[in-house]
Design a binder for these strands. Sequence first.
DNA 1: AGAATAGTGTCTGTCAGACACTATAGA
DNA 2: TCTATAGTGTCTGACAGACACTATTCT
Lengths: 232, 232
Amino acid sequence: MTGAYNINQFKNPLFTVDSVLFTVKDSSLKVLMVKRASAPFAGRWGLPGGFVDVDSDDSTDMTALRKLKEKTNVAPQYLEQLQTFSGLNRDPRGFSVTLVYFALIAEQRAAPHIETVEDAQWIEINALDTLPVAFDHKAIIKQATSRLQQKALYSMLPIYCLPDYFTVSQLKSVIETIIGKTIQRKSLIRRIEASEMFETTDEKVKSGGRLAQLYRVKPGVDIVHFERNLSV
Amino acid sequence: MTGAYNINQFKNPLFTVDSVLFTVKDSSLKVLMVKRASAPFAGRWGLPGGFVDVDSDDSTDMTALRKLKEKTNVAPQYLEQLQTFSGLNRDPRGFSVTLVYFALIAEQRAAPHIETVEDAQWIEINALDTLPVAFDHKAIIKQATSRLQQKALYSMLPIYCLPDYFTVSQLKSVIETIIGKTIQRKSLIRRIEASEMFETTDEKVKSGGRLAQLYRVKPGVDIVHFERNLSV
DNA sequence: AGAATAGTGTCTGTCAGACACTATAGA
DNA sequence: TCTATAGTGTCTGACAGACACTATTCT
């Protein structure tokens, strides 16, 4: 036996790319799910995804974006790899590998198209316990959720669930929805200032009381990571 | 066009599993690399890895462990997924996807076997700049290194580069080697106590001055993550 | 004026950095 | 006793939590 690899020596596993696209809508955290048209698990809800098109996709990132675009018509504001999930028993067709992405979008951006698509829907994270879901997608969503919650504690990631212009109260509300507990408004403002990621606009917006300052992300800045977590 | 997926509709990409196995040896951070026996990049150094054996591997974790065991003869003390890397041009054979794992081991555990293997070697991270390396493995190692450095700031991960029994000074030295700067001994001791992950032993060990307390990880405890980073 | 929301001032608590101090081993 | 390493005591600084206070808008 030599150390030479032979490409055909092994059966290649079934490789797919799926995405967990989150948004915050009506003060609850939701995930985009698709009603499966075909086997396996036809008729069940599953994550949007599919096979790589090696002739047109530059990389798996593009596969994920392409599949999300089919459902939402726009690219998510944030996309990163979550993890891959693999095994012999997770797909009845045989050994499978799924590379799962983790994505965020402002509800307003995706809404116009999703509402026209029959087979795609925002599903509340809390409603998942009782919903039948394809493959191991329920466990995958759980893991994606806890990654999102963790990142919300030490970074400004939740801004990607907001439109371009937003107020402190909107950001506070999105963060609270994600992590499932309240935070101090003051702490958030300190972080907004310390991060130097944002600029204020001249406009203010009415909200039932004093007008609120509108913020937006400075062009070209990267997401800031803090050295401490919020609350716990 | 229906929404039905056809498995044979797409060429399946080439899928491999590689690992970045780190250790700390002689006060420097090293990575296990193997001399490639066959094309592509025959003769160059690359990461240990290979194809999934769908008939015997339960999951890709097992593929990574199996490939590492071929080189070190033991399972690493820590293994987690880093990321996948994909693209049309990273492998001359076509579109490829590599799932990369990130692993840690105590040098002493791997040493006996590595020294008998011709084609495997610990390569210093700092020596990589000038070394010709296969594929995009140099960039992958860079990314794995920064993940390791980040985790060393907020977790006890570096203990996996140490033998079962270790002193505070050994742990301090390993952390300093990983992050590339000195830390406060006092801060480390505070964390060791706060984590409640360790137990002291009756033995002490000589080190040129006062005898040092030996610690070991309590059986069954998980790695602790702190809410603040060290220094920066 | 009163209610509602926006935003500030400032005190406390926690924990990392700094560093002087004590403790204990070998030569 | 001298040196080297182990380990403690304790002050400072950064920043999150708490919460009272002021500011501004609408009704």
